[in-house]
Structures are given as C-alpha cells and as structure tokens.
C-alpha cells in the first residue's frame, strides 16, 4: 500500500498544481472584474491545440513559448472587444457571454482541428523515466510539469507581492473603485490581467496536452472543476485558490487510490440493508467511482456553510 500512497500524492500534486495554473488566472480575473470566466478552460484547450500545431513544424519547445503568447493575445482581444462591451449590461450578461464563448471555442476547435484526438507528444528530451519507485516509473515530463507549475506559483507570488504592478492588482482586487479613483487606468489593467490569466491557462494547456490527451472535450472535463476551486478557495484569495487546487487534486487522487466504499462502511457499522428499492445502488458505491464528483459535493457544502470560501474575505 505505501507505493499507492506515494504515487497518489505525486499524482495529486501534479493535478493540483496544474489546476492552480488555471485557477490563479481565473481568481484574479474574478476578483478584479467580478466575472466568472466560463471560457477560461477553453483557453487552456486552445493552448494545447496551438502548441500541437506549432510543434508539428517547429518542435515542442517553440510551441511552449509561442502558444501561451497567442492565447494571451486572444484573451486580451476577447476582453477588449467582447467583455468590455457586455460589461455595461451587468454581471449576468458577462457570465452568459463567457458561457457562449466557451461553447463557440469548442465548436471552433472542432472546425479547425477536427474531432479526433490529436497526436500531441511529449518532447523526446523529456521522454525518459525520472525515477522508478516500487516498480512504477515517474516520467521526466511529469517532473517537468511539476517544476513549471511551482515556478509559475513562485513567479506569480513574487510579482503580486513585490512589484508595483502587483500592488496595483492586489489593490484592484480588494478595492477596484479606489484604484480607479487614484488615477490608474483600470480598463487597461483589466485587459492586461485578462491576457496574462488566459496566457497562464494556455500554458497549462501546452504542458498538459501531451499527457491528458488533446481532444475537443478537454475543456469541458476541466472547466467546471476550476470554478469549483476558485469558489472553494474564496473570492479574491490567491493562497485560497492554491490551497483549494491542491486539496481537489489530492482528494481526487486519494479517492481513486482508496479501495473503500459503502460496503466497507456498512460492514464497519454492522448494518445491512435490503436490496430492493430503487436507490439500492447506493449500498454498493465505492469512493473511486464518485471521485470526479467529490469537488462538486465539496462546493455545495462549502457554499452552504461558508459562502466566503475557505480563505475568502468578501462575499459576492
């Protein structure tokens, strides 16, 4: 069992940190502009697809650098010519706009790249096992993913706490109107933050594409989980988003690894139920089966009992 635990932890970390790359951008955008960007994961998907196309001609590493930039520019354009226009009609319109955008991007991806899964491969340079533990390999590419995500977290933290831009952004998160009153160009900051946020999502797509498969449904699979993280973590709290990302990543990983379920629980309690009513599947449920929906369960519980999220300070 120890090997399962170790690898579950490692897997959870990889997933969690990857989720954080998405959540960090989303949470800053959400806090500053009040927009829950439904299309955030779509930019993640775009990142993977752009990188795939670029890698066909110029190799993986060029894609790693170019694709996030392209996605970031696209994101900034969406903010400038889409969101800003809708902004005057209120938050619901914004949310609905990003919802439509997510739908549109998925269809556009299918239009340009087709519906098949894409043969987007890890670079040869990282195609070796980093280490072997209990007979299972941990690929160098996963190590690379971990390193990049940690690097992004540290970089983001430094920028937000040490630089002038970071201070303005932090101020804009908690007191958006005050910042505008101080004479900062808030719309420009919005565009820039949106661009950087989507670029981060794009980067996550670039590094996740080869391992998590590049296909048109990849945004949908991740999309709502990222929201869940931002809400659980708490509005306007980057550390909250970080914590929630790791929590969700590890939770799902452990849930799959754990070989327990309702039968064990019932046995433990010494209970037995008749197997004849319509919901009797409940008694045979195990944890791994419901792992992917645990985040939503957590979301509902958190929102009921602590609407500000784990580390949030303000309510929407």
């Amino acid at each position: 069992m120890p090997e399962v635990l170790v690898f579950a932890t490692l897997n959870g970390l990889v997933t969690g940190l990857l989720l954080f790359m998405l959540a960090s951008g989303l949470t800053v955008i959400f806090s500053m502009m009040g927009v829950l960007n439904f299309a955030h994961a779509s930019f993640y998907m775009l990142g993977a697809y752009f990188a795939y196309s670029i890698s066909l001609y110029f190799g993986y590493w060029t894609g790693l650098i170019l694709a996030p930039l392209i996605v970031g520019v696209l994101g900034a354009l969406v903010e400038r010519y889409g969101l800003r226009r809708v902004h005057q009609h209120g938050h619901v319109a914004e949310l609905v706009f990003t919802f439509g955008l997510a739908f549109l991007i998925e269809e556009a991806v299918q239009f340009f790249w087709g519906q098949d899964t894409k043969n987007y491969q890890t670079p040869d340079l990282l195609d070796f096992p980093l280490f072997t533990l209990f007979g299972q390999e941990f690929s160098a590419y996963r190590g690379f993913m971990l390193a990049i995500s940690i690097g992004i977290f540290i970089g983001l933290y430094q920028v937000l706490t040490r630089s002038r831009v970071g201070l303005i952004i932090q101020a804009a998160i908690s007191h958006p109107h005050m910042v505008a009153n101080l004479g900062h160009n808030v719309p420009l900051i919005f565009t820039a933050v949106f661009g950087v946020g989507t670029a981060l999502a794009g980067l996550a797509g670039v590094i996740a594409g080869p391992v998590l498969t590049t296909f048109p449904g990849m945004a949908l699979v991740l999309g709502s989980i990222v929201f869940v993280i931002v809400v659980i973590g708490g509005l306007g709290s980057l550390p909250g988003a970080f914590l929630a990302s790791l929590l969700i990543g590890l939770l799902q990983s452990y849930a799959i690894a754990a070989n327990v379920g309702m039968p064990d629980l019932l046995a433990l309690l010494g209970l037995e139920f008749p197997r004849s009513h319509p919901l009797d599947d409940l008694w045979t449920l195990n944890l791994a089966q419901i792992a992917p929906i645990l985040p939503f369960l957590l979301l509902v519980l958190v929102l009921i009992f602590r609407p500000t999220g784990l580390m949030g300070k303000r309510e929407q």
């Binding site: 869940v228 809400v231 929906i293 509902v300 929102l303 309510e315 929407q316």
Partner: peptide, 18 residues
C-alpha cells in the same frame, strides 16, 4: 436561495453536476 448572484449560480452548478 439564501444568496443570489454568483453564490446561487455556483450552487446550482454544483447541484446540477451532482
């Protein structure tokens, strides 16, 4: 329905997925 806005939207999303 305790809250409207984003909290409500997120709960509805969570319930929907569940």
């Amino acid at each position: 329905t305790r809250k409207a806005g984003t909290v409500f939207a997120m709960i509805s999303l969570g319930i929907g997925e569940l």
